Amino acid sequence: MTQQKRTVFYLSDRTGITAETLGHSLLTQFDGIEWETVNVPFLDDIENAQAVLAQINRAAECDGYRPLVFSTLLKPEILEVIKQANCRLFDFFETFIRSIEEELHQPFVRMAGRSHGLQHHLSYFKRIAAINYVLAHDDGVNPKNFAEADIILIGVSRSGKTPTCLYLGLQYGIAAANYPLTEEDMSSQQLPKVLENVRGKLFGLTLSAAQLHFIRQERRPNSQYASLAQCQREIQWQESLFHLFNIPFLDTTRISIEEISATILNRCGLKRQLYG
């Protein structure tokens, strides 16, 4: 079955993160469409707006369908240019702002960049501090500072600890450390000594042996480290360890890093440290 091909534009007078995030979330609910994505950040003058208008019209002619355009543009004169294009426009501010203005009995300030700017300095610096902590405590480095962590992810090599820690730091301001469980740990059937005093902060990541085998094959093809048998042994051992020491853990085989992170926060009772 041939997929329908459509073009989607994300337009913003700043970074475009809000338009892309909201638009993408909506479009994931529709199957059978191959999307050609065009991001246009910092669209803040008439000349560039006219160029984007022409680009939208070319896409409509090429696709045979009018493009979808998701916008967080604030300047009325820029938005008026885009409205002339052969497209289906979804303006997030127009959709929601009027109702909020009515409820709050005041007009919105029409100031671009507030959601991703530096208005909340404390929140911003919390994010930077959290990311610095993650980078300084990746892969078992500096375990003497683990007591300062909000959470410590543990699991065998390539189980997703580092990317999850980075996402927790970037999106939530969580100081996340991680510690790799190794073959040497397997022989003892005990928690590594450096983790004994921080057991209450531990959270395990696991996945299917087949998925681990696939990931490790990309890193070290046809090695003992990547063999399915080795992956099966390590996964079986680490899950036994999690059960033995009552360490909460999550099977990440079929879930995204966003869902992994949100699940960890929910199960551990951690709160977002940003935007406070």
Rank of each mutant, 00 (worst) to 15 (best):
D185M: 03
N222G: 10
R58W: 06
R220A: 14
Q4F: 12
T253S: 12
S261K: 04
V8S: 00
Y124D: 11
I257A: 05
T37P: 01
I128C: 09
T2E: 15
A51R: 14
L153E: 11
L104R: 06
T7R: 04
T15W: 01
P248S: 03
N86Y: 03
R110C: 07
Y225S: 02
E80V: 00
Q84G: 11
K271I: 04
Q230F: 12
E101R: 02
N178K: 06
I257N: 08
G155N: 07
V81F: 07
G16M: 09
R267G: 00
D138V: 02
S157Y: 07
F9R: 00
R58S: 13
R6F: 01
Q84I: 03
A177R: 07
I33D: 04
T37E: 14
K271Q: 14
C87I: 01
I257R: 05
R216W: 08
S157K: 04
A85R: 05
N142W: 14
I151C: 11
Q84Y: 04
T37N: 08
T37H: 10
G16W: 11
S71K: 08
Q211A: 09
V40N: 01
N86M: 02
G113K: 02
L274I: 06
E258N: 11
T162W: 07
E101A: 00
L89D: 01
F9G: 06
N57S: 10
F70P: 00
H243R: 05
S208Q: 05
I56V: 08
T2R: 13
N178S: 07
T182R: 07
A59I: 01
M111E: 14
Y172T: 02
F214E: 14
D44F: 15
D91M: 10
L104N: 02
L68V: 05
C165N: 09
L89F: 03
E218H: 13
E36N: 15
T182V: 07
S187K: 15
L195R: 09
R14D: 15
F92K: 00
Q4Y: 12
L26A: 15
L170Q: 14
L207N: 01
P41I: 10
P221V: 10
N57F: 07
I46L: 15
A130Y: 08
A177S: 12
S12W: 05
G204D: 05
L207K: 04
L265S: 05
T28K: 15
D139R: 08
S71Q: 03
Q106Y: 07
L228I: 09
E36A: 10
A210L: 13
W237Y: 15
N145C: 11
I151E: 02
T7A: 05
L68M: 12
R66D: 02
